[in-house]
Design a protein around this nucleic acid. Structure first.
Lengths: 353, 353
DNA sequence: CTGTTAGCGCGTTCAA
DNA sequence: TTGAACGCGCTAACAG
């Protein structure tokens, strides 16, 4: 018998109190402490009280990672977003957290910067924490990402886009449909020459969902018998307001014929509106602008921005609920949510009408 | 000998592959796999290759929680923010992530909704994951929060405010100083009757940092010999644009004398600008407006919003660096960063000047 | 209701 | 360079 284990750890900080410390202080076994914390009703009132006191005295906080190792349930839910600096995704994350945290699950948030390679790296890093469920924005992933997720055998929820062939579960909306909605709204107002501004088609950084919206927009315009919309893809994700202004400037310079513009996001739409204001173009009298996302700013700018809302907080809560159902053993179904138009004052009939 | 341990876990999903599986497949011991992944140079090229293949074939991802339990280093860094739906905090989080992730640390993000009680709960939940470091926005915490952090014995970094008495380390700026800067700028332009709009003093939901900015603003005005600024605290955190408009409306109705307004955040400032536009008040000719935060929108709206920047991404990176230094065994110092004015076009000399 | 035993997946330590 | 033993902190399973 060599004596391992005594003082074998090198220099390191004072350790946090463990269950053993609490048990010793309370004069009960470690198991009783464990039960007192997890299933208080299976412990005698006296033992419970002793444990409670010892916990308070030591400032003990259970080590859930150790618990996870033992119980094979980490109570971690991984969440990969394209970026945090986007109100919609932040709202989505808060919606998910609002449901999961009170239920004892810990969201683990990461951001991929709209890159599939970074997403794959992130998935690998997060899988190393053995989450009980994995939430991904988007349905486009690298082969290896899909394989890793599949091999992990955990619940996977894809969101922010709807697909009939999810890795596992899907809670999202059709971005094509959102684009169609945009075209239908503008056509309904009487516009014929439409335009759209969106993100670049850069090889590695791509807004796949935004691209779907643009396609839906174009296809709906065709279906409605309108000329093909002018589509400018110049913004680099993550999109900031300035990109909207720049792309709008290009549109006004090179394709002055359009009377209505669909912007891939409110962020771009606002920048576009400012560019119009700078040039003395009245919105919506001379030019209609329609956004996407119903960001906070859409309701505050002048004129109020007409936009398409997908209610990220509600979607997040729905995702949280689905995860809890799955954890409880039931088999929730995928769900397609419906984007809807929010009418404000940036769209109206075209000038000649 | 009763036979425990065989199939003792109840119904649960297909388990992820473990190091044992990889070792068996590679025909080496578990330890060799461990070393092949952690210290490849201490493993023979042949063994390394066998392991590498087995890893690829199984889609194995190491369990870092188990690793953490063994090594006593979780490589997790906890981060509590007031909210994700605030560009500054999102940027801060991304800045921290940008440094930590490549170094092998996993940020764990939570949001407290500006509530000290929720923060305490969050700290407890996050401590249960045994982070190697803890980052908190703000220097105001509940007694229990401070106690828990102290008892945990880990590195703690407070940010977004500077204090000489941090729990452990502090990387932040003086919010008072930011407020003073605002008053000095406006006074320098010739304004005498100043005003400020900020968050409510609700009992539980408080923007402590914003309040410090307001106090710095007031004190600097006094020091400069100006009449006391009118300060309206009506917005409820988290502040959205609409609150700026409402508070501005109240200011214009009840205190029409002020020629310059400092808004506690760009979000409020923008709402305030829109309210002015709605009323036909020209900014900055009739009224100057100064924001805080240098949010994306400040550079895009018209007129461009003069504001105070604290560079959250840089601060985040600084925090990440400090954490890595501490992990490497050195003793980094606290750092006070300096807020700075970003001049655009929403402030100018007062009407009569 | 309580305690004992065993083991979750890994890294540390020591021995070969 | 490799492997075996051991234990990190906790919970499942069982015995009392």
């Amino acid at each position: 018998m060599t004596e391992h284990g005594t003082g074998r750890r090198g220099q390191h900080r004072r350790a946090a109190p463990t269950m053993k410390h609490v048990a010793a202080l309370a004069g009960v076994s470690v198991m009783t402490v464990s039960r007192a914390l997890a299933t208080p009703d299976r412990v005698s009132p006296e033992a419970l009280e002793k444990v409670r006191r010892a916990v308070l005295q030591t400032g003990y906080v259970p080590d859930r990672n150790a618990g996870a190792l033992s119980s094979q349930r980490s109570h971690i839910v991984a969440l990969t977003l394209p970026t945090l600096a986007n109100g919609n995704f932040a709202d989505l994350a808060e919606g998910i957290s609002d449901i999961l945290l009170p239920a004892g699950y810990q969201p683990l948030i990461g951001h991929s910067g709209h890159s599939l390679e970074k997403e794959e790296e992130l998935v690998r890093i997060m899988l190393a924490r053995r989450p009980d469920a994995f939430v991904l924005v988007g349905t486009t992933h690298s082969r290896e990402t899909s394989r890793l997720l599949h091999a992990s055998g955990i619940t996977v929820i894809e969101t922010w886009e709807y697909t009939d062939n999810p890795v596992d579960l899907c809670v999202g909306f059709s971005n094509r449909r959102a684009g169609e909605l945009a075209a239908e709204h503008l056509a309904g107002l009487g516009h014929r020459q439409l335009a759209a501004i969106g993100g670049s088609l850069d090889d590695t950084l791509k807004d796949y969902r935004g691209e779907q919206r643009l396609r839906g927009f174009r296809d709906a315009a065709r279906r409605l018998g309108l000329p093909d919309p002018v589509i400018l893809r110049e913004a680099v994700v993550p999109i900031r307001h300035g990109q909207g202004a720049g792309t709008m400037a290009r549109l006004l310079d090179d394709h002055p014929g359009a009377s209505a513009v669909f912007a891939i996001s409110d962020t771009m739409a606002f920048g576009a509106m400012m560019e119009c204001q700078r040039r003395g173009i009245a919105v919506p009298r001379q030019l209609s602008i329609l956004g996407f996302g119903d960001f906070d700013i859409a309701g505050q700018c002048l004129p109020g921005l007409s936009t398409i809302s997908v209610d990220p907080v509600a979607m997040g809560r729905m995702i949280g609920d689905r995860i809890l159902e799955r954890m409880a053993g039931s088999a929730p179904r995928s769900e397609e949510t419906a984007p809807r138009i929010v009418l404000r004052h940036s769209t109206s009939a075209p000038p000649g009408a």
